[in-house]
Design a protein around this nucleic acid. Structure first.
Length: 260
DNA sequence: CTCGACTCCTGTTAGC
DNA sequence: TGCTAACAGGAGTCGA
């Protein structure tokens, strides 16, 4: 599913949409427009302009227009970015294997005939003008140990719930969280504030490795734990039974033996 | 402010 | 074969 890694791949694909004259906006699904955003407002903001930057903050993709407007794109769990008919990513866990144009929820057309569109079967993504970037925590690709210590490894809540809180660190989704905690040998259900400094440092080391691996391998479904995210599976590391629980409201797999 | 529970969305799949 | 129910998770809201 689209987590920070997929959105970074989308961001790179969106660079092909920069510095092209925007001729029209297609917003056939008003549900997909969030906050006060309307199709007319988006068109008024960007038609006649160009996008001059494609930025990413956590799972939010931000396209800056030449006159200073910002267009925020969210992809939920099944959204794909398609630029000039070319999908930015081939496979999305939990999304449909089909790729049906009827799932196009939003598009920006360019005067040269190309376009940028969001194709989202389950409509959990969205488009918002002038998104509130300050509401998101430090981006997962550049988060520092100090930020993790201050914002994540605090309180009684399960550490995984903390990791999924986008206001603390932005960009971690369910699959990244499970993979990093599994590699780092940390129990997802253990309270966030109970970890030692050496655990916190080990977590950051594995977080960076997982992000690099997932980017290289093409998405957040490429983890070593991923094949075992099924009922009754055993830990790929030590063969112990895997636990399947709800932690932070999400299905969570962890090793009963080596995650403490 | 914190935090868990609930709700939304719909394609896919398991089970009868 | 055809149907229903469960399932998936990102994000917003609400009440304690």
């Amino acid at each position: 599913m689209p987590e920070g890694v997929e959105i970074e791949i989308y961001r790179q694909a969106a660079e092909a949409a920069l510095f092209r004259h925007i001729s029209a906006v297609e917003a056939p699904d008003s549900w997909f427009l969030k906050g006060q955003t309307t199709g007319e407002a988006v068109a008024a903001a960007i038609v006649g302009q160009q996008f001059v930057a494609a930025r990413r903050l956590g799972k939010l993709l931000i396209l800056d227009s030449s006159d200073g407007d910002r267009l925020g794109l969210r992809f939920g769990m099944t959204g794909r970015l398609i630029v000039d008919e070319q999908a930015a990513i081939g496979y999305l866990e939990y999304s449909s294997a089909r790729n049906d144009p009827k799932w196009d929820r939003f598009a920006v057309r360019f005067a040269d005939g190309g376009d940028l569109r969001i194709r989202d079967p389950r409509r959990l993504g969205g488009v918002i003008l002038e998104p509130d970037e300050a509401a998101l925590g430090a981006d997962v690709f550049s988060v520092t140990l100090g930020q993790l210590v201050d914002r994540v490894f605090v309180g009684e809540v399960a550490v995984k719930a903390r990791l999924l809180d986008q206001a603390r660190v932005a960009g971690i989704g369910n699959l990244i969280a499970d993979e990093v905690l599994w590699r780092a040998g940390m129990d997802p259900a253990r309270s966030a504030g109970s970890f030692e400094p050496k655990d916190q440092r080990r977590f950051l080391k594995h977080l960076r490795a997982v992000l690099a691996d997932f980017l290289r391998d093409g998405g957040s479904h490429t983890g070593r734990l991923q094949p075992a995210r099924i009922r009754g599976a055993r830990c790929p590391k030590d063969g112990a039974p895997l636990l399947r629980r709800q932690v932070g409201g999400r299905t969570t797999f962890s090793c009963s033996q080596h995650q403490r």
